[in-house]
């Protein structure tokens, strides 16, 4: 199971990342050039995935769309890591203290907000666009990483090597940075993978309602929204971006699951 998850997840994730990177230097067609006579063509040798209602090459659009999706999701997860991990470490280093209490209650509060509604609120009020989408998704990554970090750091503080470091007179924040954090890296990688996949879904949702990356830069969600009115005429226009979202999220989830099982021996399936 674990093998299969990584074997399937890794190439899928690599494919999406590769397509996004390749689109920086090369795409089969020009995503800004309109070619109305060639609109809504089914997949062919000239256009591997067909064309949209403006005659644009769908493969090129999916490749450039991968860039927008990944960029928003990666930076949003980076924001969550950058703020959430130090908060979680600080909370764990003084477990039960006022800082811990403040961090955890603020987390509870953010968790109580329906994330999609707040993301829509932020992007709609602050103006649609990739940057505000990053902020809106990133805010909800902060408590996730803070909680995961705190939860994993707490038991470490009772371990002998940490007690030794404290006896040696090291400050709590230095112990957190030098001894606790390195032990959490695998866990954070796994959580990061899952959060990137959630970020891709959230970005797709936001750009579907017109609040994500703005034209002319294609995004998967907006491609789907535009395809909605012509789904009866040319189903492939709706199938292609949806499949791109599905495969990238599936790939990252499988990779995350496989990595988690690989890194945590307790989760390896025991013979029942």
């Amino acid at each position: 199971m674990r093998r299969a998850a990584i074997l399937l997840g890794l190439p899928l994730s690599a494919l999406v990342l590769g397509a996004a990177l390749l689109s920086l230097v090369w795409t089969p067609g020009d995503v800004t050039a309109l070619d109305i006579p060639a609109r809504l063509q089914p997949p062919s040798s000239a256009h591997w995935l067909g064309t949209d209602h403006f005659g644009r090459d769908l493969l090129s659009m999916v490749m450039v769309g991968a860039r927008a999706s990944l960029m928003v999701a990666l930076v949003a997860v980076g924001l969550g890591l950058l703020l959430g991990v130090p908060l979680g470490l600080a909370a764990a280093s003084r477990a039960g203290g006022p800082l811990d209490e403040l961090v955890m209650r603020t987390n509870d509060l953010i968790f109580a907000f329906p994330s999609l509604v707040i993301a829509i609120l932020i992007t709609a009020l602050a103006g649609p666009g990739a940057l505000n989408a990053i902020l809106a998704i990133g805010i909800f990554n902060i408590p996730v990483f803070a909680r995961v970090t705190r939860g994993a750091a707490l038991p470490l503080w009772r371990r002998d090597f940490i007690l030794a470091a404290r006896l040696a007179g090291k400050h709590r924040s230095r112990i957190s940075a030098e001894h606790i954090l390195p032990n959490l890296i695998p866990l954070l990688i796994v959580q990061g993978t899952i959060q990137i996949s959630l970020g891709i879904l959230a970005e797709a949702g936001l750009s579907y309602v017109g609040l994500g990356a703005q034209p002319p830069l294609p995004s998967w969600g907006r491609m789907l929204a535009e395809a909605q009115t012509m789904v009866a005429l040319a189903p492939h226009v709706a199938l292609v971006p949806g499949a791109a979202i599905l495969l990238s999220v599936l790939g990252l989830n499988l990779l995350g699951d496989g990595l988690r099982d690989h890194l945590d021996p307790r989760l390896r399936p025991a013979r029942a």
Partner: peptide, 16 residues
Amino acid sequence: LGIALPNFWLALLLVL
């Protein structure tokens, strides 16, 4: 598959 499926895409497929 179900977890990775964006519900608005599924909606579109169901409509189709």
